[in-house]
C-alpha cells in the first residue's frame, strides 16, 4: 500500500489491563485497513487500566476504526487526539 495521501491520526485507548488486549487492538487495526505508525502502552498499576496511544494512517475514515476498537469487550474508551481531523465524537 502506498503511504502517500494517507490521513494520520493519533488514538488514545483506555483498556482493561489484559495481556491479550494489545493483540486484539493490533488485529482489528490491521484488519480494518489502518497502518500503525507508532504505539505506546502503559499500565496504571493502581487501577489496572492500560493506556495505549497509537498513531495510525489510512485512506479510510477514522470513525470506522474507532467504532470497531470500541466494540472490543476489554476497551473502556477510544478517542482521537488530533484536532486537525474530522471524526465522529467518541467517548465511552
Amino acid at each position: 500500500m502506498s503511504t502517500a495521501n494517507l490521513n494520520k491520526y493519533q488514538l488514545i485507548i483506555m483498556a482493561d489491563d489484559k495481556q491479550v488486549v494489545l493483540e486484539r487492538i493490533l488485529q482489528v487495526t490491521r484488519y480494518r485497513g489502518f497502518l500503525i505508525n507508532g504505539m505506546n502502552a502503559e499500565v496504571n498499576t493502581g487501577n489496572n487500566v492500560a493506556t495505549i496511544t497509537m498513531t495510525v494512517s489510512s485512506e479510510r475514515p477514522i470513525s470506522l476504526l474507532i467504532d470497531q476498537i470500541n466494540k472490543l469487550i476489554d476497551i473502556k474508551g477510544v478517542r482521537v487526539d488530533n484536532s486537525a481531523v474530522n471524526n465522529k465524537q467518541q467517548t465511552a
Binding site: S63, L64, D67, Q68, N70, K71
Partner: peptide
C-alpha cells in the same frame, strides 16, 4: 444495535 454498522 451495533454502532460500527452505522456509516460502515
Amino acid at each position: 444495535i451495533d454502532t460500527a454498522e452505522i456509516n460502515k
